[in-house]
Structures are given as structure tokens and as C-alpha cells.
Design a binder for these strands. Structure first.
Lengths: 209, 209
DNA sequence: CATGACATACCGACTGGTTAGTCTGCCGCA
DNA sequence: TGCGGCAGACTAACCAGTCGGTATGTCATG
């Protein structure tokens, strides 16, 4: 657990009031996210992070146990957000093809909305300490399985083609989601929603019986 | 060009004869490929590479201008191989859906056969110097366009669904190819060819009119 | 209400360790 | 004798994490 001296998730009062500068831990996370996505984890020095956040090393190591810990928090934030959203779609009271389509499109939109996180996710996984890596993988697996169950359900009920193993279908789709950070440009022709609809269409068409 | 002191691609006589140890530049490339894929570019020291190759720093800097140069050569090797294979399939005298299917499946098989290269490809792109990065991107774009033309041809002739922009279709497929290095395990249930067939099926099904 | 005890939130100089790249020189072959 | 092919000690730079110190706030007590 890297001996964090203070809980990052615990409430920290924002002395600036609504509208002021965000509290220090958030500023550090934001700065780190941007820098990690731009230069990569190893190429970003702790000094650069604290300068971008307008504090010093003392502050960083007051809130985070290590540089590695900071990265881990970024992963945690992303995974929590994604799981939350998937659960909402998967639990909806709709036909399975609707639920899958909405979930598939939503993960595209939220990925584009947080492209920095997405860039970091796969690129920096191996910079995490082995235990933290294991933990992230476990959370990731839960997410994958929830998604896979949707595909499987549709295959069993006959609304989806059952020729392809469901795990492979999920990896197919998430491959394309992962790949977004390599080609999507906010100033391009397609809006996030349009890209999401297209990718969901491709998935659903691939699953037609 | 980072002042390489000797041409890496130029013929280097293999004093060991057929069956002996490969010449030093190849040994260095092989060691670097393995280590980069295992630990990442930044976490691999030049010292480790030369030790794994059974030589010293003097040898490495005799053949390569920099550590960065070594990475660039790995990219070059992969891109040359991929482009060569794609050209062969795209130029074949077959219906477009056959050509696309074969090309799509082939890139999966060769990616699995060179998983280390694939791992490095997207993970370490940003560690390359800006100019080398630009060069790699340009070569990559050519590859992408060749593939896209196949999709476009099929859409124009009506054998493929034309609802999705062809560029997006290509990114969809290559997303899944890219993703292979994150989940494929050689000791898993599916052979490379089986995975390739499934992924090609998914692509072709998504493109059905 | 004043006071002292303690905690939180941060500062910034310092350390120990690591690393890419250099440079001088040896050695065997042509 | 010259040169490609390498060896390996050396250097200059950098960087994560530490640690003693300061300022501000909180809280119990007399």
C-alpha cells in the first residue's frame, strides 16, 4: 500500500469555496494526468508534476505514497467511472441488443471525453508495481465479464450470432475503444457521439445472426 | 538521423557461418525487442541490452547511433514486414471480400507471431524522437490507406455496407489487432489462425450489406 | 477568553543511486 | 600498416524519495 500518509479519497475541504482553485490533491491528479498522457509516465518527473500543480514535492508526498501511487489513483478513477456507467446500462430494463448497443456506445463517448486517461491506461500499465497491476487487472476483468455477459445473453437467446466466442467479441470491441486515443482528434470531422454510434453499429452488425 | 556510424541494414558477414550465433547487430535487435516488450523502453537500460546480447556498450554504439535508433530499427523492421504482406494480398486476383478477408486475417496471424513487436509498437511510439515518430507515422499511414482502399472498393461495388466511413472501419479492425498483445496468450485455447479467422469473420460480418 | 498541546498541510534543500553516451585503446585481419 | 570491430572505464546529468522545518488551525482547559 506504499504507506500513504493521508487518505486521498477522504474529504478535503476546499477552502477556496465554489469557484476557487481545486484542492491540492485534485490539482496534482489533473497535472499528472495531463503530463503522463503527453510525455509518458517515466518521462515525467515528480518535479514537473508539482510545478504544474503549483506546489512542491512536500505536498505530493503528503497526499500520495509515491509517484506510482499517483498513477494508481488515475487508474482507480477511470475504472470506477467506467464500471458505474456500464452497470447502469447493463441493468436497464430493455432488450439485450439495446442494452449492449447503449453500453458499447457509451464507453466510446466517455473514453473520448477522457482521452488522456485512455492514453495512459494501456501505455503505462506496466509501470505500475506488480501488486497494483494485479489489482487493476482484477477490476478490469470484472468490467470485461459484465460486458461479456451481455453478449452471451444475446447469443443464448438467439438475437446474436453465436459463431464467435463472447470473450473474443468483447476484446474486439475494446480493441477499437482502446485504439481511439491513437487516432481520434477532437478537431476532426466526427463528433464523439457519431464515432460512438458508428462503432456500436459495427459491433451490432457483426453480431447479427 | 542521429549519426549512425555504420549502416544497420547493410550486409554484415556472419563469421559464425550458418548455424552459428547471429551477427552482433541482429543479436542486439533481438535482445532489445525482448527487453523492451517485457519492461518497456525507458525501464530497459542500455547496459541490460548489451549484456543480454553478450557484448558491451562499445558494440551497440558502433552499430546504432543511440538507444532511440535501436527502437526505430525495430519499428522499421515491423513496418516493412507488414507492408510487404498486405501488398501481396491486396494485389491478388480475387474478389474484394476475399482479398480483405485474407489481409485482415493475415495481419492477425503475423501480429501474434511477433507479439513482442506489437507490444512495443503502440506502447513506445512516444519515446521515439519527434522526427522518427513522424517518419513512422507516415509509413503507418500508407499501410492504413492501402487497407482502407480495399474497404472503399467493396463499398463502392456494393458488396460491403457503406454506412460506416472506411477509415473508421480500418481503425476498428486495427484496434482489435493492436489489442491482441494485451490479451492473447500462446498457451490459451485458440490458435493464432483460429483467432485470425474469428476476427476476420467479425469484420466481414460487420460489413455485410 | 487566553493558553498551551497537538495535528495538518505544506516547503525545499539534500542524498544516494542510476543512466545514456563518450572516449581511449586493444586486437585480429587484409 | 591501417582499419573495422569491439571492450570497458568514465562523466555529467538527472531524479525519486527523505527529512527537518514552518505556518496555520483546532481543541480542551483553567
Amino acid at each position: 500500500m506504499a504507506t500513504p500518509r493521508a487518505a486521498t479519497r477522504s474529504g478535503v475541504k476546499d477552502k477556496g469555496g465554489t469557484g476557487g482553485t481545486p484542492p491540492v490533491p485534485q490539482r496534482l491528479m489533473a497535472a499528472a494526468t495531463r503530463l503522463f498522457s503527453e510525455r509518458g509516465y517515466d518521462r515525467t518527473s515528480v518535479q514537473e508534476i508539482v510545478e504544474a500543480a503549483g506546489v512542491t514535492k512536500g505536498a505530493l508526498y503528503h497526499y500520495f505514497g509515491s509517484k506510482d501511487d499517483l498513477l494508481h489513483e488515475i487508474y482507480g478513477r477511470l475504472l470506477r467511472r467506467q464500471k458505474e456507467r456500464l452497470d447502469a446500462y447493463a441493468d436497464a430494463d430493455e432488450p439485450v441488443e439495446q442494452r449492449l448497443r447503449r453500453a458499447a456506445a457509451d464507453v466510446v463517448v466517455t473514453t473520448i471525453d477522457n482521452l488522456d486517461d485512455a492514453k495512459i491506461f494501456f501505455r503505462s500499465m506496466h509501470q505500475l508495481s506488480p501488486e497494483k497491476q494485479k489489482q487493476v487487472r482484477a477490476e478490469r476483468r470484472l468490467y470485461h465479464e459484465r460486458f461479456r455477459d451481455l453478449v452471451e445473453e444475446g447469443q443464448r437467446s438467439g438475437v446474436f450470432n453465436a459463431d464467435t466466442p463472447p470473450d473474443l467479441v468483447v476484446d474486439y470491441h475494446f480493441g477499437s475503444v482502446h485504439h481511439l486515443s491513437h487516432w481520434y482528434r477532437p478537431d476532426g470531422k466526427l463528433t464523439p457521439q457519431q464515432v460512438a454510434d458508428h462503432l456500436a453499429d459495427l459491433l451490432l452488425r457483426a453480431l447479427r445472426p
